[in-house]
Write a protein that binds this DNA or RNA. Structure first.
Lengths: 144, 144
DNA sequence: AAATTAAAGGATAATTTTGTCCTTTAATAT
DNA sequence: ATATTAAAGGACAAAATTATCCTTTAATTT
């Protein structure tokens, strides 16, 4: 569904959100350990998230990553997915056709459209804030 | 969403279905041309479909691929997807966790579950027969 | 200002997915 | 029986994704 990079991105963002809510800025090592991801690879992903203004990064001692509390409800899963995987999953054809539309649909177009739109809606309506709450409250988990 | 292999598999199966409904057995070259896929790569995929009893293959002169008409309504999209991509898309966690369950859910578990189940249901209830009709009737397309 | 800390970024490597080529096997037709 | 046809299968290659290592840049602390 999502690329590995995107999975890491979502996990990392949620973890950073939890920590930011507690007033903590977190470093790469911390994040990679917490979400069980390769450190250097995770660094690249965090860079992308930072460039896309999904997270903030601070260099130097006591540096690290954080998310502005006021922005946290604004950030939706869809933005993370778009930033890392692009928007093929929201807009793309189920069979990968470039030109697949209402007037020239592929065989699965109508059936696929329904699912794709529901996925899109779900991602657009799910905030990082919301997901971080479940994690902070111990209702959800980022590792086994 | 689906791998390239799986996209080819679905396209090929639908095309074979249309031809089988018209009493034609079709060869690899024909299929690859029609669905705009690399020939040798498509051959591998057709082998997998054949091994999984989704299509039948016949060697030698006038050989090729076909689908039993009586079986055609039985074959669902879900079987093609399972055969080629496995069942991660039906069962897997949205964030890729091995152990993600109701009692130990990942942060997106509840929201993702809904979409995944709808996708599963759609694929399980969509027959190749059904999709081949739209194509045969000129309502849907396998190329631009 | 100098030393230290941590992210940014470039280069490279491993793995997986996608794609190609060539030989073998099995069926049909002559 | 032999030749021909077309799928099956093995080995290999290219491309994309995932992952690692090392240097540079930008902060903070001393």
């Amino acid at each position: 569904m999502f690329s590995k990079s995107c999975e890491y991105a979502i996990k990392a963002t949620i973890y950073i959100a939890v920590q930011s809510n507690q007033g903590n800025r977190v470093g790469l090592k911390d994040i990679a350990r917490e979400i069980a991801s390769p450190e250097a690879f995770t660094a690249k992903i965090l860079q992308q998230l930072s460039r896309n203004h999904i997270i903030d990064s601070v260099k130097g001692p006591n540096g690290g990553f954080q998310i502005d509390k006021k922005e946290m409800t604004r950030i939706k899963l869809s933005q993370i997915v778009s930033a890392i995987d692009g928007d093929a999953i929201f807009k793309g054809c189920g069979l990968g056709f470039k030109e697949c539309s209402e007037k020239k649909p592929c065989p699965v177009h109508d059936k696929f459209k329904v699912i794709r739109n529901e996925l899109k809606t779900m991602l657009e309506n799910t905030s990082v804030q919301e997901l971080s709450l479940g994690l902070a409250n111990g209702l959800t988990f980022l590792h086994r």
